[in-house]
Design a protein around this nucleic acid. Structure first.
Lengths: 213, 213
DNA sequence: AGATCTGTAGTCAAGTTTGACTAGCTAGGG
DNA sequence: CCCTAGCTAGTCAAACTTGACTACAGATCT
């Protein structure tokens, strides 16, 4: 799976109610277009699909306040909220080797509570270790290693990635255990969406409107 | 882009001429179903698509020697060979953050020559450093860091991944510079495909025929 | 001898992703 | 007053991916 569904659910949920263009702007604000497949087509598709599956409720809205075609506002259903939390849990835990998946989950981890997150991350470390073991076993022929030639570099690369990922996860666990950040039920949450008329303070000068320029 | 086209081109090229099922078996032998999207549908799709685009030449072949529907054998065209080498170069160089892409390129790097590979990998290190810089700049607000809350962990994760990837690449450069492996024009190449009637020595006990069980 | 299992080879519908394109409105220049 | 650039909001076709399914032949079981 990709990160897009979680990103979209998370963005809509922060607003309570949002239309596609708002979601698109949040994801850009988060830099998600740089590290995930957050492109207009994918975003609008995810919204429609999840509405069809009952994760989002779609409100048809009049011609829009400022230009453009009529827009639709979405809102999480109860099922959508469950799905959202489930995805956060799953993406924190599973070693997916696609970094966008973990990244999205990191952004939303504070919607769970501290102890649960710690548990999930420890589980993550275990699945990374399992993966590492599977890789070394698969690429170690009975005739002993060294028969592999440059193919051994593939194993080397995966092992290195796994070790690096595990190490990073352990660091995160330590920071969270040390009291960093504000998790669910611990007071004022961190807010990471753009208000109705706020400018993206991280504007890069890249523009998307009109696209092809 | 995904790694599938390169994997398929590489497999066909090693055989000289191959049908879909052979490619499918090679990719399984390589473990590619574990770290990339090498599934039957994707493989057959890639073959057909690349045939349509003139990268592969399709020979229609009689009802097959042992069971199953009539099969088609493919062979790289000149354009296909160019594309193949181009993809190897591109995937060695670009920091794509999708590990399957680099993995595929590692498997085929020995089709280039040593000096070229060293150049490409050095370029790779540079692009990782560029990415790292872009990430830190994007996630550092003017009000100073610390305003980021748990979002800072996203930056932390990306920076850690970039550093780890760069370090690994430097290690590879050193090994190659030190004379490891046999590159293009240096004598007997390493062979990594299954002969017509050879069993997969890495058999995992997982089976795919008949699929759904 | 018939039934079932296994292996070979591949198809197909449904869902996703991509990149380019559309269309309404407004602000500002000439 | 018209024109165009830019913003808001989204659509669409083509390509790609996924997971389940099909069809045939030989081997094995009963």
């Amino acid at each position: 799976m990709s990160a897009i569904r979680l990103l979209v659910l998370g963005a809509v949920r922060m607003h309570g109610r949002a239309h596609g263009y708002q979601v698109r702007n949040d994801l850009e604000f988060w830099g998600a277009h740089e590290w995930s497949n957050a492109k207009p087509g994918s975003i609008y598709h995810a919204l429609k699909q999840m509405a069809k599956q009952g994760l989002l409720h779609a409100h048809e809205i009049a011609p829009s306040t400022a230009g453009g075609p009529p827009r639709t506002e979405y809102e999480l259903t109860e099922k959508g909220t469950e799905e959202y939390l489930g995805l956060v849990r799953q993406y924190l835990t599973a070693y997916d080797q696609r970094p966008d998946v973990l990244t999205a989950a990191l952004g939303f981890m504070v919607d769970l509570d501290r102890e649960e997150v710690l548990g999930l991350l420890e589980e993550r470390v275990r699945s990374i270790e399992d993966w590492r073991k599977a890789v070394t076993e698969y690429y170690t022929p009975e005739e002993g290693p060294g028969q592999l030639g440059h193919i051994g570099e593939i194993m080397n690369f995966w092992v290195h990635s796994a070790d690096s990922g595990a190490e990073w996860t352990r660091g995160l666990i330590a920071r969270i255990r040390g009291g960093a950040y504000t998790f669910s039920g611990e007071g004022d949450p961190f807010v990471g969406i753009l208000a109705e008329d706020q400018e993206n303070p991280y504007a890069t000068g890249e523009r998307h409107p009109g696209d092809s320029r």
